[in-house]
Design a binder for these strands. Structure first.
Length: 919
RNA sequence: GGGCGGUUGGCUCAGUGGUAGAGCACUUCCUUCACACGGAAGGGGUCGGGGGUUCGAAUCCCUCACCGCCCA
């Protein structure tokens, strides 16, 4: 094994082995527990970003965890055709050739998109493999697969037949940039510094004017009223009067409507029903005319008048403002900060326009009611739970869903028009002909919102609308993880379609993962260039390091401030594990002449290397039985600690607390196994006591084996690489049993004993450090004291401590680098010692051992410092005990513990005082 | 304007009533035969401000300030 773990050499090879081994493929196994996840399908145009990396690290960890527990695990991968995004990419490609999609025509264009998809569309899948995702690639699905298209059409027709889909002229969010309508939730409101123009609208009868404040003077030609609040005293006697629209001869009424806010501007707002969603509603209430002055191309229409027609909407604004000023009706221009709706894809300003579109009824439907209830009644769990409220709140205010998109790439809406304009919905041409009673039909030109197909993902990927064995076994899925921002776009809609078409919820648990931000707390965005490329990080540090880094920060949906500096920590952790394994394996190789007679075992030094495994006792035979294997204090301790770790990790994974799972593993493996158990094993491994040596080897190996399996879901590659090299291992750790805590191995006495041992070693090392001078001028003195093995007198407190220290003396000697050690009943009574104490024992080192001629004054200062520390603690604890309220009201255990603490602290303090008195 | 989340050592974060924790960074020391992607020993925080509840508050309540996200 190499001295440092090199992920680059390992990952590609291991992943290929896993795929070849078929570990990720799942078939229905009725009667056997299953765990299924349909991954959020990335856009076919997508490349892996940190948000994906986190999302997939979580999913894969949970899937691997369940797979090791013996469940049939299906993680179903796939891609979304991403209508707008993909069409945009291909259009840009055409643009470079000097073409537009219209030059090609629909059919050729769609062919071109397919060609693009074949060439570039699987980048992200390769990247997911780099991350180690254990997905069933044989089941890869795409939302434009023929089977999937069938599901989409089926869903549309069923919704249509149920009366939920309708065509209507409505105000839509028109993306001028993309030349299509987009849904409300694809709109991003961006706070912008704008202006508020105050324009005077004269009364038609010449009796003065009303000043109207607007952010959009270019829509003035489309005004069909001015509204004021009915309660506004400034206008109460003028409601109903006619105003002359500036720059025109047209007269419009002054109306009263609650929509007009008395606080906004002058309290009077112009109403443009064809260009503002609120004005549209006002217009409906007051039966106002809708005049479209801006067209789909973002230019002023003929209805805007000859002077303005053909101008771009923003140029027209300047032109109109200029004309208003010239006409003397521009009262003032105010600076004004407000939100402007933008298209989240093209980043262009949305134009609210009137347009014929297909909609799906949402508000008030039974479907929405059911979909709300299943979450509010706890049928679907959210983590963090607060997102359930977000979901329910949104459902309560849900609006109808604009389904049609003016695109070519996507599922073409299966509506067929007859020559008289009437229409039918149908799954295919034949059904359309049959339903319409004629074959003189034309299909709707628009395609469906991409989210319509995504909404069917959990079941359409399993064969729906056919009642397949896959669907029966794997559906409903068990887990969904996604970003909070698509809770409404995607999650809510899957719930709706799932309930409607399968009668079941599509998943039982939804985990909303954190947003990965940059180190300054900003979203990672291409435009800022602050993104970190996960693949680059994998190249540099390995997939395990990236996964561990993300998961250890993934706490309770809290956003993650991430930077590359966090990754080496995890890389180092993997390397630490690697080297611990090297140590264990090196020690197994060395023959142990002290033991030859393990029943049924072959000779440990038999040829063939791996035959050694036969001499190893299975973990189940290791126990804390007196005198047997695994019976030493450190051995009982590490096994007890391991059981606690197993419990912690399982429980953390069960509650999706990935950070807790990582922390438990990190602490155990590094701070307990490596720092203490490995070190404490060394005397036995290097000693001549055959059985002790054998026991140490077996426990080292057994605990390592368990740790690897415990860690595998989070760091799959390094654990596989090590585990496969352990003696006696065949197959893959992917399907090795996941550890379950064995309570019989819990050993509180061993844990208490080790607390004493660790405390003692730490205290004695501290003593040495304290007397080791720094700086180049003290090199000789430093070398002398570092080389010295201290003589020590140990005074244990209580029989337990005597036994513990007696048993662990070799370890103490080795790790604290001691010389002659004497166990004594009482402290030495002369001054020539330096002492340190821990709970359970005191240690006395002759002053002459530390440095020639300890300065009594200096030593006194040291003791005073220690006493001061104890005094501080004593003051706090006894302060509480002196409080009558504490003694009478606090829990008896708390009071008892405080009393015990005071006693212990007082005793230790007494000893220090005694030492000081001797100086 | 409404809702949600956050504010703990230099940095990134754990910690939901009983003596403040981790990793990184920092200081000193150590190239000891698993690992310098390492080991040992240290220093460092009145837990955003104010008020309240309680014997006891980082933790519960109120309030203010600031930061972020979502929605309108």
């Amino acid at each position: 094994m190499e001295k440092a773990y090199e992920p680059q050499d390992v990952e590609a090879r291991r992943y290929a082995e896993w795929e070849a081994g078929g570990y990720f493929h799942a078939e229905p196994a009725p009667g056997k527990p299953k765990y299924s996840i349909a991954i959020p399908p990335p856009n076919v145009t997508g490349t892996l970003h940190m948000g994906h990396a986190l999302n997939h690290a979580v999913q894969d960890a949970l899937g691997r965890w369940h797979r090791m527990q013996g469940d049939t695990v299906l993680i179903l991968p796939g891609m979304d055709h991403a209508g707008i995004a993909t069409q945009t990419v291909v259009s840009r490609q055409l643009e470079k050739e000097g073409l537009t999609r219209f030059d090609l025509g629909r059919e050729k264009f769609v062919e071109r998109v397919w060609a693009w998809k074949e060439e570039y569309g699987s980048r992200i899948l390769v990247q997911l493999k780099r991350l180690g995702c254990s997905y069933d690639w044989q089941r890869l699905r795409f939302t434009m697969d023929p089977e999937y298209v069938e599901a989409v059409l089926e869903a549309f027709v069923r919704f249509f037949d149920a009366g939920l889909i309708y065509r209507g002229k409505r105000m839509v969010n028109w993306s001028v940039g993309l030349q299509t309508v987009i849904s409300d939730i694809e709109v991003e409101n961006i706070e912008t510094d704008g202006s508020l123009w105050h324009i005077n609208y004269p009364f038609a009868d010449g009796s003065g004017f009303v000043t109207v404040a607007t952010t959009r003077p270019e829509t003035l030609m489309g005004d069909t009223a001015v509204a004021v609040n009915p309660a506004d005293p400034r206008y109460s006697d003028q409601i109903g009067k006619m105003l002359r629209l500036p720059l025109t001869d047209r007269e419009i009424p002054l109306i009263a409507d609650d929509y007009a806010s008395m606080e906004f501007g002058t309290g009077a707002v112009k109403i443009t029903p064809a260009h503002d969603p609120n004005d549209y509603e006002v217009g409906l209430r007051h039966n106002l005319e809708q005049i479209s002055v801006i067209g789909f191309d973002g230019k002023m229409t003929a209805e805007a008048g000859v002077r303005y027609a053909g101008w771009d909407r923003f140029e027209a604004r300047d032109l109109i403002v200029g004309d208003l000023e010239a006409a003397g009706v521009l009262e003032k221009i105010e600076r004004y900060k407000h939100s402007i709706p933008h298209c989240d894809r093209s980043k262009t300003v949305i134009e609210p326009l009137l347009s014929e579109q297909w909609f799906m009824k949402q508000a008030g439907t039974e479907l929405v009611a059911k979909s709300t209830a299943i979450v509010s009644d706890g049928g679907i769990d959210f983590a963090p739970s607060r997102y359930a409220k977000t979901y329910v709140d949104w459902m309560d205010g849900i609006r109808d869903w604009a389904l049609s998109r003016q695109l070519w790439w996507g599922h073409r809406i299966p509506i067929y028009y007859k020559s008289d304009g009437s229409y039918v919905a149908a799954r295919n041409w034949d059904e359309a002909v049959q339903r319409a009673g004629t074959d003189e039909l034309t299909q709707d030109e628009d395609v469906l919102d991409t989210w319509f197909s995504s909404a069917l993902w959990p079941f359409a990927t399993l064969g729906w609308p056919h009642q397949t064995a896959d669907l029966a076994y794997f559906y409903p899925t068990d887990f969904l993880t996604t970003a909070g921002e698509i809770l409404r776009l995607w999650v809510a809609r899957m719930v709706m379609t799932g309930l409607e078409f399968t009668g079941e919820k599509p998943f039982s648990d939804v985990y909303i993962h954190a947003t990965v931000l940059d180190k300054k707390g900003r979203r990672m965005q291409k435009s800022i260039g602050n993104g970190i490329d996960p693949v680059e990080m994998i190249d540099k540090y390995g997939a395990d390091a990236l996964r561990f880094s993300l998961l250890r920060l993934a706490s309770k949906g809290q956003d993650i401030k991430f930077s590359e500096e966090r990754i080496p920590e995890s890389r180092n952790f993997g390397n630490k594990l690697w080297n611990a394994a090297r140590f264990v394996l090196l020690n197994l190789e060395e023959p142990n002449p002290g033991v030859t007679a393990d029943p049924g075992a072959t000779a440990p030094d038999s040829p063939g290397g791996k035959d050694e495994e036969a001499t190893l006792t299975p973990p189940s035979l290791l126990g804390k039985g007196a005198g047997g294997l695994g019976s030493s204090l450190p051995e009982r301790w590490i096994q007890s600690r391991l059981q606690r770790t197993i419990t912690a990790v399982n429980s953390a994974l069960a509650s999706y607390d990935m950070d807790d799972a990582c922390a438990a593993l990190y602490d155990f493996q590094w701070n307990e196994y490596c720092d203490w158990f490995v070190e404490l094993s060394k005397p036995a491994l290097q000693g001549e006591d055959g059985p002790a040596k054998e026991s140490a080897r077996r426990v080292l190996l057994s605990v390592l084996d368990t740790t690897l399996r415990l860690l595998h879901p989070i760091m799959p590659f390094v654990t596989e690489e090590i585990w496969s090299n352990l003696p006696g291992k065949t197959g893959s750790i992917c399907v090795a049993p996941y550890p379950v805590a064995d309570e019989s191995l819990l050993d509180p006495a061993a844990e208490a004993g080790m607390t004493l041992v660790i405390g003692s070693i730490t205290a004695l090392r501290g003593l040495r450090a304290e007397f080791t001078p720094g700086g180049p001028e003290h090199e000789a003195a430093r070398a002398a004291i570092l080389a010295r093995r201290f003589r020590v007198i140990v005074v244990p407190e209580g029989e337990q401590a005597v036994d513990t220290l007696r048993a662990l003396l070799p370890s103490l000697v080795s790790l604290a680098r001691l010389g002659e050690v004497t166990l004594a009943n009482a402290a030495p009574t002369d001054a020539k010692y330096v002492s340190v104490g821990v709970a359970g024992a005191s240690y006395y080192v002759p002053a002459s051992e530390l440095l020639e001629g300890i300065d009594p004054a200096k030593e006194s200062v040291r003791l005073v410092g220690e006493i001061a520390k104890l005094d501080k603690e004593l003051a706090a604890v006894s302060g509480r005990l002196n409080n009558p309220g504490f003694v009478s009201k606090a829990a008896p255990e708390a009071v008892e513990k405080a009393r015990q603490d005071v006693a212990d602290l007082t005793e230790r303090r007494g000893k220090l005082e005694a030492r000081r008195g001797l100086l």
